[in-house]
Structure formats: C-alpha cells, structure tokens
Write a protein that binds this DNA or RNA. Structure first.
Lengths: 163, 163
DNA sequence: CCGCTACGGTTGTCGCGACAACCATGGAGG
DNA sequence: CCTCCATGGTTGTCGCGACAACCGTAGCGG
C-alpha cells in the first residue's frame, strides 16, 4: 500500500505537538531542579507516593504508575534513598518484593517543591488555555492515551482524577 | 502569596498531558529506531534539512529549528556524518561557521523512514482524533507554544505549516 | 520434598543530553 | 594594524535511561 501523507491541517497539528513534546518537559524539569533539587521524574515518584496509603508502595506498582521500567526505577530509588528522601524495605509477605516509602524529608521535599511546580504548570499550561480548551484537552489526551497505552497501565494514575 | 492549587478539571487535564509527554516520544522513537535505524531527533534533523534549499543549512540555524543546543547538535551531526548521512563543510562566507548537508544516503534514509513514521503519527495521534479535535489541538498547542517559546525560535518551524 | 519455571529487583555496559571550558574567526574602535 | 569582545562550533566530564544479563524467591507439578 502507498503511504498516506498528512494534509495541511494534520501536519500543522502534528508539528506543534512535536514542538510541545520537545520543549515542555525541559522547562518543567529545569524549574524543579532549580527550586527543589529534584528532577521531574523524581518529583513524579514523590507525588505518586504521597497519594499512597502510608506513603509506601511496592516497586513494581510504583513503576507501573510512573510508566517507568523496573531497572530505571530501581536506579532512581537508590539515588533518592541515598539522599534521604526514600527508604527501601523488604516486603513482609514476599521476600522478593521491595516496598518504597517516603521519609520525613521526602514529605518535606515534596511540599517544598510542589508550589513552584504547580505555578509552572499553571503558567505554561493551565492559564494559557480557556476553560473550554481545557475540556477539549482532556478529551483529546484521553483519545491519545487510548491508543498509546491500550493495556491501561497508566490509566490507573489519571482515571483517578476524573470528574 | 499562597499557592493556587489546581481544581479537578485542571488536574485531570494536566495528569493526562503529563502521561502523553512521558509515553509518546518513546513510542515514536522506538518505531524509527527499528524501521529506519534513526532516532527521533535525528529524523527531525533530516526532515528539517530536507526542506532547506540544497538540503543544506548552517549549524546554528539547524540548532534553532530543531530546538537543540549547539553542543548537542554538534555531537549528533558528527555521529550522523560518520554514518554517511550528512556532510559538514566549512562555510564559504564565514570561516567560523559550518554548513551541514544531506548526502545521497541521507536523502534515501529519510525517504525510507518517512512512511513508517507518518503511519505511526497517524495511528497514535491523527487518526485518534476527530477533525474538530484536530482544529482544537492546533489552537491549544499554539497557545502553549506562545508561553513556552516566547522568542519564537521554533515558531519558524511550525508557522510554515499554517493554513 | 525436589526440580522447574515465573516473578521481582538489582547491577553492568553503552549511548545520549546538559553544562562548562575551550578554540578559532569576525568585526569594531582607536 | 592591533586590541578586545562577540560569535560559531567543538570537546570533555558527568549523570541518566535503555537493554541485557543476572540473582534470589515463589509457587507449582510430580
């Protein structure tokens, strides 16, 4: 079959999306590094843990909700533990598994970093759009994630914030 | 001032955007690596050069249009040159500057990789949305880029595809 | 109870991006 | 001309992510 190219409107949309994809993570990551001494992915780990009961979660569960591979998460967690943000502990019910939990400093760091991060998200995303556009964006990203994540691994993370 | 938190709708939108940001690049990058032996950023470099007169461009101009720092671009171009996709040549009019040009194999690689990439973009983005959503997406990403890229560095890249 | 496979994590190697230091050329002012 | 600063790129170091190989434990079949 011959290639089905993109028409002008599709191309316009795609090029812009690609640009956002390229720039946005860098902007947010930079803000968090400066203000909180934490990378964007580390902040995401902290954020997910704060919503977990007892601030503790199993490695594999955390990996799924942060969309990380286990090797990646393992390294990140080890570094964060060495900085005193997290603790690893062998799971009681399964000697293979590891539970990760927030330390006091982990909580404190999250609370310290959150305002700046929220402000950045506001400035660069939320406040840039009208309420209608925000609704449209939810519908659009839902449709995209349907294709991107058919098994629904991350779905558990974002479905929670449904209206 | 106290922190202005996100309401449910804003949070719903943001969490989904973050998820897309996390997943989409990996999906597209993987497809290109498998099918074309090229990374997403390398493909973007090739694509931009394809649209330049003579398939040639100055390093600094290329860096701006691909939203890359000069060091990063320098390394990428060196690797691509060693693979025979590009050539570097000292600029005629400025001995400090470097012109980068596509080789025959660079053109061939781009043409070989393009169909699969377009298909991936179609499948994961374009075809997942209705025509109305595509229009909305253009407006939304425009608004975001306004904030993200106030100097308009990448604007030159995507404004070209306006209707 | 033994052996086998699957699961949950960790570790080693490689390649890439960020940042800073550095080198060469261009251009302006005296 | 010569000095000084700005411009355009390149190179070195460091930290992180991907992938694969590996280790210990669980659970199941015989």
């Amino acid at each position: 079959m011959s290639t089905q190219w993109l028409d002008r409107r599709q191309l316009a949309a795609w090029v812009r999306v690609a640009s956002v994809l390229e720039v946005l993570p860098g902007v947010l990551d930079g803000q968090l590094r400066r203000d909180g001494g934490v990378t964007l992915f580390e902040y995401f780990v902290l954020a997910v843990l704060t919503e977990a009961p007892g601030g503790t979660m199993r490695m594999s569960a955390l990996a799924q909700q942060t969309n990380a591979t286990l090797p990646r998460l393992s390294n990140v967690v080890r570094r964060m533990e060495s900085r005193g943000l997290l603790v690893r502990r062998r799971a009681d019910d399964d000697a293979r598994a590891t539970d990760v939990g927030l330390t006091e400093e982990g909580w404190a760091t999250t609370e310290r970093a959150a305002p700046g991060h929220v402000a950045a998200v506001r400035h660069h995303v939320v406040d840039a759009l009208t309420p209608e556009q925000l609704d449209q964006l939810v519908a659009i990203t839902d449709a995209l994630l349907e294709r991107l994540d058919p098994t629904g691994g991350m779905a558990a993370t974002y479905r929670r914030y449904d209206d």
